[in-house]
Design a protein around this nucleic acid. Structure first.
Length: 463
DNA sequence: CGTTATGATTCGGA
DNA sequence: TCCGAATCATAACG
């Protein structure tokens, strides 16, 4: 027993006296009675006591040094890893199963919808630029296109907001995650933090942020739905076509009166000409032709004037084209019924005798063969077999037949020219056969039923 | 405000 | 699936 031990024993002895009036803690009396053992215990306790008693006297530096010592202890990593393991086990058992996140169906729905609406996913058609271009191109000719581009522009706006917000959230999320990870790594030196724990923390952060993102997606979806419903409402509402569009459609209708069923391509062409840019342009054109056909058929008298107008217009166009094509045409048949021919419609009045002659020459005697008419689609004339009396028997194709319709309109309207159908100077409905169907392209035009006409009109406004 | 014109929708048939 | 027919809905008009 060395000197130190003796001192300690002395110290212990003092304390153990129990009745000492000195301050300090009193310890319960030890059970052991053997002298040697009891002495050792007393020594330990005394040591601890000493430390405790003096801890407040230690300087900060000293404490730091001790902490550092502890941190540098060679067993520290092992200890921490064990502690981490324990934490992991207890932590997992506490948190339970709800940790696992299956793909949220709601989120999936939102994602799908955003994708379908073109908000998320690849940029379609150049976004605002395209919308602006569409708006500029339409030039106010068609309300439909304006509405459409308006819709597009608004959708683009929503899309942009959505993307910037999403980006912002993602950035914030990343920043926050790295910050927290750094913090945890820092702390992992002084307290046991397993990589898994960090991972979990990151997961929690991501979940929090994704819930915010979900809110963003939800409100974006709502905005799109509102926009969409408004747009659809607007589309459902009746918007009259522009005058120009109606004119183009009418022109086509009356110049194809014998077969007013535009092909898919023709519909597209017409839609383009009419500046109809909404989706399903074909449907719009089809609607127009459907309505036109039924209404024309129901009340031909009502459309007579219109028919004449467009017929004359088309004929003049055709005649001009024809005149251009056969500038040096000759053959002025004496049988040509051109005396007193006068275009009544001021708009398309032919002001010179020469043009009149040219027109009639081309109409009834014509150059042999056919010529293509520019700007008239599939329209061409092939009327070498025609004359004023016997055109009915001519076996001509649909295009030619339609041209015949057109010309007959002009003739009957403008010159009171009798075409041999009982002296009826008024335009009779062509293209319709006695059964009310449209004349087939391959069948020659038949005599119109006398019961069908302006007198036997049905009203479309029966409702 | 009633009527008309007209684009859209619905429905049955081929 | 397209068409005709009926009907609806609403813009335009007087």
């Amino acid at each position: 027993m060395d000197e130190q031990a003796r001192i300690m024993q002395a110290l212990g002895g003092v304390s153990l006296a129990g009745h000492s009036v000195q301050g300090g803690m009193t310890l319960p009396p030890p059970h052991g009675h053997e002298a040697t053992d009891g002495d050792a215990r007393k020594q330990d306790i005394g040591d601890i006591l000493h430390q405790i008693m003096t801890i407040t006297d230690q300087s900060l530096d000293e404490a730091q040094a001790k902490k550092h010592g502890l941190n540098c202890h060679r067993m520290k990593p092992a200890l921490f890893s064990v502690l981490c393991e324990i934490k992991e086990k207890t932590g997992l058992s506490i948190r339970g199963a709800q940790e696992e996140d299956p793909p949220d169906p709601q989120l999936m729905r939102l994602d799908n919808m955003l994708l379908a609406e073109g908000v998320s996913g690849p940029e379609k058609g150049g976004g605002s630029a395209a919308a602006a271009a569409a708006a500029a191109a339409s030039g106010g000719a068609a309300d439909n296109s304006i509405e459409h581009s308006d819709y597009r522009a608004k959708l683009t706006q929503i899309r942009q907001i959505y993307h910037t917000e999403l980006e912002k959230y993602e950035q914030a999320c990343n920043e926050f995650t790295t910050h927290v990870m750094n913090l945890l790594r820092e702390q992992s030196r002084t307290r046991p933090i397993s990589p898994k724990e960090i991972e979990r923390m990151v997961g929690i952060i991501h979940r929090k942020f994704s819930s915010i993102q979900m809110q963003l997606k939800q409100s974006t979806c709502e905005a799109v739905m509102i926009l969409r419903s408004r747009f659809l409402d607007a589309r459902r509402k009746r918007r009259n076509f522009s005058k120009q569009a109606t004119e183009i459609l009418n022109e086509y209708f009356y110049s194809h009166l014998s077969n007013p069923y535009p092909s898919e391509e023709a519909k597209e062409e017409l839609a383009k000409k009419c500046s109809i840019t909404v989706s399903q342009v074909g449907e719009v054109v089809s609607n127009w032709f459907g309505n036109k056909r039924i209404r024309y058929k129901k009340n031909i008298g009502k459309f007579q004037e219109e028919a004449n107008l467009y017929a004359a217009k088309t004929a003049v166009t055709a005649a001009h084209a024809a005149a251009a094509a056969v500038q040096n045409s000759q053959t002025n048949s004496p049988t040509t019924p051109n005396s007193g021919f006068q275009m009544k419609d001021e708009e398309f009045q032919l002001d010179s005798a020469e043009s009149k002659n040219t027109l009639l020459t081309n109409m009834f005697t014509g150059p042999s063969g056919s010529f293509n008419l520019p700007n008239s689609g599939d329209m061409f004339m092939s009327m070498q077999s025609l004359n004023g009396d016997s055109y009915q028997g001519a076996q001509v194709g649909a295009n030619v037949q339609s041209q015949v319709d057109t010309l007959r309109h002009v003739i009957s309207q403008t010159a009171g020219y009798s075409d041999g159908l009982g002296g009826n100077s008024l335009y009779s409905p062509h293209g319709l056969n006695a059964n009310g169907g449209w004349q087939d392209a391959t069948t020659p035009s038949s005599v119109i039923s006398p019961t069908e006409g302006p007198g036997s009109v049905h009203s479309d406004t029966s409702n």
